[in-house]
Simulated assay, not measured.
Amino acid sequence: MRNVPFVAVEGPIGVGKTSLAAAIAKQFHYHLVKEIVEENPFLGKFYENMEEWSFQTEMFFLCHRYKQLEEIQHRFLQQKVPVVADYHMMKNLIFAKKTLKDHHYQKYAKIYDILIDGLPQPNIIIYLHASLDTLLARIQKRGRDFEKNIDPLYLQQLCTDYEEIFSLFEREHPHIPVLRFNGDQLDFVQRKEDLHYILERINHVIKGALS
Score class of each variant (00 low, 15 high):
62 L>V: 07
170 E>M: 13
82 P>C: 06
143 G>W: 02
155 L>K: 03
165 I>K: 15
193 E>H: 14
92 N>A: 07
113 D>F: 12
193 E>I: 12
92 N>Y: 00
16 G>S: 01
209 A>Y: 04
19 S>D: 03
155 L>R: 01
144 R>T: 08
64 H>C: 12
172 E>M: 09
191 R>I: 11
42 F>D: 10
48 E>S: 15
20 L>C: 07
164 E>Y: 06
47 Y>R: 10
153 L>R: 12
32 L>Q: 10
95 F>T: 11
32 L>D: 04
71 E>C: 02
194 D>V: 05
198 I>N: 02
15 V>E: 01
156 Q>D: 10
13 I>C: 12
121 Q>R: 12
165 I>S: 15
98 K>I: 00
93 L>Q: 08
110 K>Q: 15
75 R>W: 00
123 N>Q: 06
38 E>M: 10
4 V>I: 15
126 I>S: 02
70 E>R: 06
100 L>D: 06
180 R>L: 11
104 H>Y: 11
208 G>W: 08
198 I>W: 01
80 K>Y: 14
73 Q>P: 00
102 D>A: 13
45 K>V: 00
22 A>D: 11
16 G>Q: 02
58 E>I: 05
4 V>W: 08
103 H>Q: 12
94 I>W: 07
33 V>G: 02
102 D>Q: 15
121 Q>M: 13
163 E>G: 13
182 N>M: 03
181 F>D: 01
201 R>F: 00
6 F>R: 05
131 S>D: 09
104 H>M: 07
75 R>Y: 02
143 G>D: 09
84 V>N: 03
103 H>A: 13
66 Y>W: 14
204 H>W: 10
25 A>Q: 05
165 I>A: 15
70 E>T: 04
41 P>Q: 10
165 I>F: 15
21 A>H: 01
3 N>T: 08
88 H>M: 09
25 A>Y: 04
1 M>L: 04
72 I>S: 04
34 K>E: 09
203 N>W: 04
25 A>N: 07
40 N>P: 15
170 E>W: 09
56 Q>M: 10
114 I>G: 00
101 K>I: 08
51 E>V: 09
129 H>I: 01
112 Y>H: 14
68 Q>W: 01
15 V>S: 02
183 G>N: 01
93 L>P: 02
44 G>D: 10
72 I>N: 05
113 D>H: 15
186 L>E: 03
158 L>F: 08
168 L>W: 13
89 M>A: 06
83 V>N: 07
97 K>Q: 14
20 L>D: 06
105 Y>K: 10
17 K>Y: 05
111 I>V: 14
11 G>H: 03
55 F>M: 09
116 I>E: 14
26 K>E: 15
148 K>W: 04
69 L>H: 09
132 L>Q: 04
166 F>K: 12
183 G>H: 00
28 F>W: 06
43 L>D: 09
120 P>R: 06
95 F>L: 08
40 N>M: 14
161 D>Y: 09
35 E>Q: 12
49 N>Y: 07
201 R>K: 12
64 H>Y: 14
99 T>I: 02
37 V>H: 07
44 G>N: 14
68 Q>Y: 04
161 D>L: 07
9 V>R: 00
99 T>M: 01
107 K>D: 10
46 F>M: 11
9 V>I: 13
187 D>L: 00
127 Y>L: 05
132 L>W: 04
182 N>P: 01
135 L>R: 03
82 P>E: 06
